[in-house]
Amino acid sequence: MHETMVAQSLLATISDESAKQNAKPISAKISCGTLNAINNEVLCFAFEAIAKGTMCEGIKLEVEHKPIRGRCKNCKENFDVALPEPRCPKCDSGEFDLLPDAPLMLEEIEFETE
């Protein structure tokens, strides 16, 4: 349900960028770490609802989920953490430190060209 607040911040960020470019946005790519627990359908639905009547109405959102990353304590390899039984792919150790989750990012906007 926190997708609503994410959608609001996203709308504000896309609107700012569109004003700067003086162009109408058609689609936007965002990325987020898996631990941010963003549900694509919920985010798109919330965005669609709050974007109605704004310049962002009808734009298409593409969401890329970045994997959780870990650093093996044994062999120092950085790897994608696979739930629910994460192990280092190189040495098979289960001992690792979690690396910071990727933040929610607005990566790219596509604008209409005249």
Binding site: V6, S9, L10, A12, T13, E17, Q21, A23, I30, P103, L104, M105, L106, E107, E108, I109, E110, F111, E112, T113
Partner: peptide, 14 residues
């Protein structure tokens, strides 16, 4: 036209 933005969405909260 595609534009790279690279902005944190929750920057206001951060």
């Amino acid at each position: 036209m595609k534009v790279n933005v690279g902005k944190r969405i929750l920057s206001a909260n951060e």
